[in-house]
Amino acid sequence: MNVHVVVEGVVSEKKIYRAWIPFLNPNLSYVDHISLMTNDNFSIVSGGGFPNYFSTIEAAIEDVNSYSNIDKLVIAVDSEDFTYSEKKNEITSFLSHLHCTVGINIIIQHFCIETWALGNQKIMRPNPQSSELREYKKIFNVRLSDPECLPPHKKEELNRAQFAERYLRYALNDKYRNLSYSKSNPEIMLHSKYFKSLCMRYEKTEHIKSFNDFLLAFN
């Protein structure tokens, strides 16, 4: 099976998906470009965070249609300020005007990939050292409650996706000294243990439900 993946984000998604997909499906191996797919490969194209994401999807569909050896197209987007269903409807309605010769899986990262990442309960110390993190925990405790329900941080003027990113950075800094998370350097999330802890959170609780889109797309 060959799978072509389109991700929206700057750097992190591409790195994360490249690492996570083989954890879920070890038969799949990564190639640098869609033209290099042979057997059981996957390739990823990132829209680079530029506002032309729909044209990246359109071009990906044209590519998939022109190569006869691709079995599936996966499209991953953040819902950001939209609800899960609103974002899913937006993408489905856009795709309804296009013809794709293979099946398409849509992954809605509700509301961003950092929200999923906050699902790892091991990264939150029971008693954080950092005063900011203690404050964040008071507003919303991601260890106990579903990270997908994180509210915006009004005082710091952060929408929920920005809050999730900052929350994750502070949590990782607090737990592992000198470790920094950024969209260009999501190193810690690339480990299999990290991925497994998200799978556990999803399986054992009703939390990070949108993570199931990822599991369904590559299982």
Binding site: H33, S35, V45, S46, G47, G48, F50, N52, A59, D63
Partner: peptide, 21 residues
């Protein structure tokens, strides 16, 4: 040659090129 094999814009392919990133 490789970029010609995809309909993605050349800039999009550049920022996805392993040599570039």
């Amino acid at each position: 040659e490789r970029y010609g094999k995809s309909k993605q814009q050349a800039f999009t392919q550049l920022i996805n090129d392993p040599f570039f990133i």
